[in-house]
Design a binder for these strands. Structure first.
Length: 422
DNA sequence: TCTGGGGTCCTAGGACCC
DNA sequence: TCTGGGGTCCTAGGACCC
């Protein structure tokens, strides 16, 4: 029988912010989305005060002031660095690790039970990550990923578990499932839970007891898998090596609404540049770029406009210049005067491994002669920390760039922002 | 004034082919 | 009056995840 563990960092972004601010130990803290728009993470204290996940900040500003809740802009340099430390530690402890998200990993613990009890192993993981990195994690252990998720859920919810729940025992599985609302099950979102509730399926146990065949007919094979997984039949494997990406997106809401073509053009040049950098990091080439621009859907008293356009290169590329050119061309096609634009984005798709593309017999496939060298020099300079090189089209003022008014220092990734001890 | 960003998978339906 | 069947590919939309 396979054994999976799900290790999940508690209140990850908020915990990262507190790590270098011991003075905030018991202070309620929230972390905001890009543009300081929504609450995307809450410390334990902030959760207890009833601040909801995902609320727009302006709706809870008064409440936050009243309770002395501190807000931070999101600081991905910090979170990504601490995340990689957590993941490296896990990789030292378990034979196979799947980094599932910035704050979660699945481990394959099959067979380790002969050497150490699963709960004891979970406690060791907790201790080591707590001691070495200063982040608290919870561990859920079960024969399927879906059950491991639920076990983790329970480990977080019930303090008596001391942060580790072993759900390998079927009786224990059933007892927990009966307590869990169906929408807390991995793979069941708002829409599905509504439809399931209408069928009288309200707990995870109800779903586990449903007929897989009937669920497949009425819903989909995805939910059928969930049913099986809840019954201890492992259908979702551990993915140690992340699959190759099929698309790369770079999109942002603007810090201030954009009304001039030239400013929007700068922004999409910047996004095309970022997206192409990611593409090179994946060692892929892309053929298609999709551009979208839109006004704010929350402003129902303002004229609305939203549009997108796709364009294709003759041959796949990872040269920033090709995609800036294409994005500019597409923007001219969909730009309309007289709107207050709130967001734009660039998406790359139709990927090829370098050298794998078969051009048509009569295609003009002449390429830029210095492409590879130029891009690699660009990437090297920009990643060295020594300075930045960029394309003129990205602009220098960046009036559209996002708002980050409560940003903490990049404590662990920049020499000039190291924490100081007085 | 102020409402995130980046992904994946599945399904239904239409276009097209023989 | 009567108008097939089977297959593939693509796209848009819907659902989910963090």
């Amino acid at each position: 029988m396979p054994v999976f563990a799900l290790v999940d960092c508690n209140n990850f972004y908020a915990s990262c912010e507190k790590l270098f601010r011991p003075d905030l130990k018991d202070t309620p803290v929230v972390v905001l989305s890009n543009n300081d728009g929504c609450v995307v993470a809450r410390s334990r204290e902030a959760k207890l005060l009833g601040i909801k996940m995902g609320v727009p900040v302006f709706q809870v500003k008064a409440e936050m002031q009243r309770h002395g809740i501190l807000a931070f802009s999101s600081n991905y340099a910090l979170y990504a660095d601490l995340s990689s430390r957590v993941m490296r530690t896990l990789e030292e402890m378990a034979p196979r690790v799947e980094v599932y998200s910035i704050d979660e990993a699945f481990l394959d613990l099959t067979g380790i039970e002969s050497a150490i009890s699963l709960v004891e192993f979970g406690q060791q993981v907790r201790e080591r990550i707590g001691n070495w990195i200063g982040i608290t994690v919870c561990v859920g252990i079960a024969p399927t990923k879906t059950l491991a998720k639920l076990a983790n859920h329970a480990a977080k919810k019930y303090p008596a578990t001391q942060g580790v729940v072993d759900l390998t025992n079927p009786d224990r599985q059933r007892r927990l499932l009966a307590l869990v609302p169906v929408d807390d099950v991995w793979g069941v979102g708002r829409r599905l839970s509504k439809r399931l509730n209408a069928l009288g399926i309200t707990t995870a146990l109800d779903l586990a007891n449903a007929s897989p065949r009937a669920i497949r007919d009425q819903f989909s094979v995805v939910l059928e898998r969930t049913v099986r997984e809840l019954n201890g039949e492992s259908c979702i494997e551990l993915e140690e090596i992340p699959p190759i990406k099929k698309q790369i997106v770079c999109s942002r809401s603007f810090g201030a609404k954009v009304t001039h073509f030239e400013l929007l053009r700068e922004a999409i040049c910047e996004y095309a540049t970022r997206a192409t950098e990611k593409l090179r990091k994946e060692q892929q080439q892309a053929k298609v770029l999709t551009l979208f621009i839109r006004t704010s859907p929350f402003k129902d008293d303002e004229p609305q406009y939203s549009n997108s356009a796709s364009g294709e290169l003759l041959i796949p590329s990872c040269d920033t210049r090709d995609f800036i050119e294409l994005a500019n061309h597409l923007l001219k096609r969909i730009w309309k005067d007289g709107f207050r634009y709130a967001k734009a984005g660039v998406m790359l798709s139709d990927f090829y491994n370098p050298g794998m593309f078969q051009p048509g017999l009569f295609d003009d496939v002449s390429t830029r002669s210095n492409s590879q060298q130029l891009m690699s020099v660009l990437d090297t300079i920009n990643q060295s920390g020594a300075g930045k090189v960029f394309f003129a089209g990205q602009g220098t003022k960046k009036d559209w760039s996002m708002k980050r008014e409560h940003l903490s220092p990049a404590y662990t990734t920049r020499w000039d922002q190291l924490p100081r001890v007085k």
